[in-house]
Design a protein around this nucleic acid. Structure first.
Lengths: 134, 134, 134, 134
DNA sequence: GTGGTCTAGACCACA
DNA sequence: GTGGTCTAGACCACG
């Protein structure tokens, strides 16, 4: 489970965690009964207060995405099939539209936006490789 | 001037307003000396408290984007050139990264994400034409 | 830290707080990393609403005087000055003009005003030394 | 009577007028029974709403500095001797200190502050000459 | 406990 | 009508 935080966005950290876990579950990359990293491990990994991770896990439990079992850990609950690809794809349309609107406001033409996206894509891939290597 | 709020994002409403006004100015779609909607009008339009809009306008004034004239209104200040294109482009990297992370968690591969983006792009263009025609 | 409010002056309370904190920092009686009283405490002390103090602290943070750390408190920043010198100097012309006008109305000729300024300057320097010594 | 307004200071315009008239009376440059300019004349001179000037005159009347005589005008009331020069000079120490603190905070050294003051002094003198000429 | 945001509604200065 | 300030009290994120 790879969580990417953006501390400058103003979006509460615990919500960023919640959203990314939910997305991973929807995609099937987190399987039922799979364990999430422990609160303190994830907190240290993200350099975030333990309470923040605990709150995220609590929120996920309330929403029925995971089940917190005291003393054992935090496990993905069974949700039947993960969403089919077109459903997951549909979950992206709103954020995509938001990005297009913002680009339009900034008068960045579509081709430049696409170039920017591919540039960032390459950069994120490189980071992933670095993290995996050592 | 059209402002779109996202109440679920956790980003302070007043900052969303600030950012969107700045984006519009940066893009040149709000011209110097142009009046913003009055605090009360925008507050009603966005279904938000007057103080929240006032705070946004105050912040914009502090940042020199706008000049608030009591009894008259809130006007875009002439700040010479709008931002250079690379600065505007830089304002997009954060949202782009957020989108890429979300797509990754949803296991939507880059090529499908790009396809989705171009699909939405076409759709937005069609809407724009409709708005302009009649 | 002693803050004296004048409710009858027409000067916004939050600005009075801002000015006095800045003055204390300038005078050296508030040192870098020193904590200001918490928003709630100062609000009670001044018999003013929490929001008013919060607004003052927010303004001080924007101006780089102070760093507000959620969950920890409000601390004096040891800051390198971002603005260029001529910009900073420009920020002084308004208050200078106001002083000159007032002196003119009080029929204090320019040379006496300058003498007074140098007198107060010496006095402020002496105070700073006293604060620094022991 | 020369009134200089600062619209950006946040100090209400009517209070700026009140303070400057009071200072002039304290200095003896406005003598008992001397007439102030009529509301509409001063309003036009200052490019300010007539209500604002009227409010200032009203405030001065309440404080016993002037006497508003309907249909005739607004006259300075007799206050015995104007203040001696050292008393008037004392009225300047607080604003002078505020200016020094602000300069210090902006890291403008005393010699530059003094240079700025003399520069503004020359500028104000020139304006006065222009106003007197025609 | 800390600071930050938002709402509801009041009053003020100004046009 | 405009923007600006203040209060009272709520909830949130974080430590």
């Amino acid at each position: 489970m790879r969580v990417q935080l953006n501390f400058k966005s103003g979006v509460p950290v615990y919500l960023q965690i919640v959203e990314q876990v939910k997305a991973a579950v929807a995609a099937g990359s987190l399987r039922p009964d799979e364990a999430l990293p422990s609160v303190r491990v994830l907190a240290e990994e993200l350099r975030v207060n333990r309470n923040t991770v605990a709150r995220a896990y609590g929120e996920l439990a309330v929403q029925g995405v995971v089940s917190n079992e005291a003393g054992r850990g935090c496990f993905i609950r069974d949700h039947g099939q993960p969403l089919r690809k077109d459903a997951r794809r549909a979950m992206l349309t709103q954020p995509v539209d938001a990005l297009l609107v913002q680009a339009h406001h900034l008068r960045i033409p579509p081709d430049e936006l696409l170039a920017l996206i591919q540039e960032r894509l390459r950069l994120l891939e490189q980071q992933k490789e670095k993290d995996t290597e050592p």
